[in-house]
Design a protein around this nucleic acid. Structure first.
Length: 857
RNA sequence: GGGCGCGUAGCUCAGUGGGAGAGCGCUCGCUUCACACGCGAGAGGUCGCAGGUUCGAAACCCGCCGCGCCCACCA
């Protein structure tokens, strides 16, 4: 570092992230640490494939937390010497991106249909050129040490080839097929969506009871529905097989009102005799249950609502062409005219809605491409059961994952959109032949007719499922694939375990024969401070970039990691500030050390007991941090790092050694530099900027390079000293007790009290007197209080009345402790059954209390 | 309808069988030569409620109350 920069450290009492971050980030990039060569094999290397953010996206708290987690892991492993790569990139996000560009077109007074598919797709690419790198730049603000030199995009040519190959192969293996099947139709999108993109919303509809007259004129059957307009597509009426009320009617026919079609009355287990009238109208074309029943019985599938949301010709006059809602009113009016509506009541139930557009899902039968998942799911369950893929935390997530795979259903993979991977499928209209191929066939092989390409694109999650290997050059056998696949950790929020995680495992196993990652970290969901969901539309979102501007990236990283202790946590600015305070504490503690140890060589000292104590405490903290990180407990790790630095190193060690430091003692200076070096490295993975910046000021570092590439401190490189630990901890406790006593006895802060060892005890370490403002130099006089191994002598600065109160209070305290201890030891069960060491501890505590009380009386 | 999680100090959260913890906030005292984004001291909790297991329960079991999430085709 230059002279100028050094002045900065000495002259400023505040760490200034704004001055540091951009500069340090550039140094990291220039160092090449982000861009490892693909050497060796994945088993010995470390890699993470980022959950690719939507190319349209902006960084939100979830990204910021997950970025902090991933970067912590990446930096940790890089420092541990493994070739380490964080694969960065973006997702084309079919629906979201298409919607953005459509909005832009609308602003220009045009639409995608008006400009046509080709021009539209060009527009999306242009849009992506303009906005695509925004979120990547925002990841940089966080300090994310990813490989930006080799970003991936799910629509890039190479990636698209992988997608095509997978589709074709899955088709060849019999998993992908085309079928006329009931799908979740999103009328807002004009596309089918998958089951996972449907969310239930509770709302109140009107439940209509409609009388269907029996064909023989002998009466009627009443059915109930919330969608009267779908009756136009009814093909049967079903009752429960055991329902005596209707037993005689099964096999008869009813006449469908308004239509006149004759419908059979059938018995089917699906019908709940307890619900409504116990009779169910069967509409295979517009209800998922009825669809199943219809297929079972071989009923006709009539579609009266089309993909445009309007009634089809099959609905007949006057309904054809109406919006479904309009048709609903018309049908009800007509039925009412005929006196066939026997009841109307409000009915609250769950209704499927599109998670994409928010519109009510219209179940209808459509010709779509499906992927049967049953065979793919089996190995994906196996690898979680046998531990080849581990969830963190394991507790709910492994089971959640397995339960879903256990009952997995076919996946509708085709989407009626324009932005995405167009299906590699061609049709011959002349002879109805279908071709699924990686390379476009020129003409129909059967009749030599013209071929027409399938217009649909694939579900975005289809391409996302290939992310861990398609980003590395698969299907080619590249050095990247060898070096980085399987990846190590996949970190994400719980909401995409099914959409993404499970599908990656399935596709990874199917196409590479290996798991795509060995560990899945499911991180907390950060809620708004009031407990609501953070969302732009609710106005509850908090912008991580603003937090970074205000407090610095390290503070935000620390705060988010600290917050992320359980499944759902509330965002807390106080935690970010705690991180900010820690960066500042680091900065200032470093100033103290460096301003007084500029010529020191980093060297662990064993000279004084406090030196051995703090080294031991650092070792214990290093172990704790390592263990927490290994357990994916990032909150625990940063919390421990904070505690050690603030409460032990700064609060005690620095205060204890100040005289030695000011005195120019070489051992303590070297020890401090050593401590600082080791701690900076320990904390670097989660607070990279401030630690790197301070690192640059350290004198005579062993490692000449930047901290990002320095070795991570591992436990076990030196011996802890439990005796020193015990001795200093006792002295600290004594200091605290004296301070407390002074405060409660009304002794002015500045006054020095005389004291002497008590009861034959050794005098305490020097720092006790200094930090508790005691003087052991004139040991004569009357004792006024005994505190552990010392007693305090009378002084004019002591208020006798307050001392009296203090003693009384302490006596009460001791008596109650003694009573508690005696009670416990009098309990025969306790003495007989509790572990001996617990009983022994209880006895020695009791003894101590009795002795202290005896002195006070 | 099924499954899961949570309920601990005013707030946000740790703690999973042996004497209730942290950060913030609050009170009192400190312009102590690294840091007032600081230092020292302190107050504050029947650990949601009610049972049970145990020598011993915030923790384990059962029930209840409250909050939240996920899954699910009862019209």
């Amino acid at each position: 570092m230059s002279e100028g920069a050094k002045k900065t450290l000495e002259d400023t009492t505040r760490y200034d992230p704004a001055e540091v971050e951009a500069r340090v980030f550039r140094e990291w990039e220039d160092s090449g640490a982000f861009t490892p060569e693909p050497i060796g094999e994945a088993a010995n290397n470390f890699s993470i494939a980022v959950p690719p953010p939507n190319v349209t996206g902006v960084l939100h708290m979830g990204h910021a937390l997950n970025g902090s987690i991933q970067d912590t892991l990446i930096r940790l492993n890089r420092m541990r010497g493994k070739p380490t790569r964080w694969i960065m990139g973006t997702d084309h996000a079919g629906i979201a991106t298409q919607a953005q560009v459509e909005k832009e077109l609308a602003g220009e007074g045009t639409s995608r249909r008006e400009i046509g598919r080709e021009a539209f797709v060009e527009r999306v690419w242009a849009w992506r050129e303009r906005h695509g790198s925004q979120i990547i730049e925002q990841f940089k603000r966080l300090g994310a040490s990813a490989d930006y030199s080799d970003e991936r995009f799910t629509m890039d040519d190479a990636y698209a080839r992988a997608v095509t190959k997978v589709f074709v192969e899955l088709h060849a293996r019999g998993h992908i097929y085309r079928d006329n099947y009931m799908v979740n139709w999103d009328p807002g999108l004009g596309s089918a969506i998958s089951d996972l993109e449907v969310e239930q919303k509770s709302l109140t509809d009107t439940l209509y009871s409609i009388d269907y007259p029996l064909a023989d004129g002998s009466g009627s059957i009443t059915v109930a529905t919330v969608r009267p307009e779908t009756m136009l597509a009814d093909t049967a009426v079903a009752v429960s097989p055991g329902d005596e009320r209707y037993a005689a009617l099964v096999g008869k026919e009813v006449v469908l009102p308004l239509v006149g079609r004759r419908l059979p009355v059938i018995a089917d287990d699906h019908v709940d005799p307890e619900f409504g009238t116990g009779a169910l109208k069967i509409t295979p074309g517009h209800d998922p249950n009825d669809f199943e029943i219809g297929r079972k019985h071989g009923f006709e599938e009539i579609s009266v609502i089309g993909e445009d949301g309007r009634m089809t010709d099959a609905a007949g006059e006057p309904y054809a062409g109406m919006e479904a809602e309009e048709a609903c009113k018309a049908v009800v009016a007509a039925l009412r005219d005929q006196g066939l509506i026997s009841a109307e009541e409000p009915y609250k139930h769950d209704v499927p809605h599109s998670a994409r557009s928010g519109r009510r899902v219209e179940p209808l039968i459509s010709l779509q491409w499906f992927c049967d998942m049953s065979e793919l799911a089996k190995p994906a369950m196996e690898v979680v059961r046998d531990g080849r893929v581990r969830f963190h935390p394991e507790k709910p997530w492994a089971k959640v994952y397995l339960d879903w795979l256990e009952s997995i259903r076919p996946w509708c993979v085709s989407r009626q959109l324009w932005w995405g991977h167009q299906l590699p499928v061609w049709y011959c209209d002349a002879c109805e032949e279908t071709y699924v191929a990686e390379v476009a066939p020129e003409r129909c092989g059967a009749c030599n007719g013209e071929l027409r390409r399938e217009e649909d694109v694939l579900d975005t999650w289809f391409s996302s499922a290939l992310w861990p290997f398609a980003t590395l050059g698969w299907p080619a056998d590249t050095p990247e694939l060898k070096a980085w696949y399987p990846t190590d950790v996949l970190s994400t929020a719980r909401d995409i375990i099914f959409l993404w995680v499970a599908r990656m495992v399935m596709m990874g196993l199917e196409f590479t024969g290996e798991v795509p990652f060995t560990d899945v970290n499911i991180h907390s969901v950060i809620q708004a401070p009031d407990g609501r969901r953070m969302s732009k539309s609710l106005g509850t979102g908090i912008d991580p970039l603003e937090a970074i501007d205000e407090h610095g990236a390290d503070a935000v990283r620390f705060g988010l990691l600290l917050m992320s202790s359980s499944q759902d946590v509330r965002y807390s600015d106080a935690k970010i500030q705690q991180g900010r305070d820690l960066t500042n504490k680091l900065w200032n503690a470093s100033r103290l050390v460096l301003m007084n140890a500029q010529d020191a060589k980093a060297a662990r000292s064993t000279k004084e007991v406090e030196d051995r104590w703090i080294a031991t405490r650092l070792e214990r903290s290093t172990i704790e941090v390592s263990e927490r990180l290994a357990a994916y407990d990032f909150s625990g790790a940063v919390s421990e790092a904070y505690r050690f630095f603030w409460s032990e190193l700064c609060d005690w060690y620095l205060e204890i050694v100040k005289p030695r430091l000011y005195d120019g003692e070489a051992e303590v200076a070297g020890h401090l530099v050593w401590l600082l070096e080791r701690y900076l490295a320990l904390a670097h993975p989660f607070m990279p900027f401030v630690t790197e910046e301070i690192w640059s000021y350290l004198p005579d570092r062993e490692s000449g390079g930047p901290l990002i590439s320095a070795p991570y401190p591992e436990p076990g490189s030196y011996e802890p000293d439990p005796l020193a630990e015990r001795e200093v901890e006792d002295a600290i406790e004594l200091t605290r007790r004296v301070r407390r006593w002074r405060d409660l006895a009304g002794v002015p802060v500045a006054s020095v009290l005389h004291a002497r060892p008590h009861g034959g005890a050794q005098p305490p370490p020097e720092f006790v007197a200094r930090l508790a403002r005691l003087d052991f130099g004139s040991p004569a006089g009357d004792a006024i209080a005994a505190i552990g191994p010392i007693e305090l002598l009378s002084s004019d600065d002591i208020d006798p009345a307050q001392v009296g109160e203090r003693i009384d209070a302490r006596r009460d305290e001791l008596r109650s402790e003694i009573k508690r201890g005696e009670g416990k030891l009098a309990n025969e069960g306790f003495v007989a059954k509790a572990p001996p060491e617990v009983v022994e501890e209880e006895r020695s505590k009791l003894e101590g209390y009795r002795a202290e009380l005896a002195e006070l009386e």
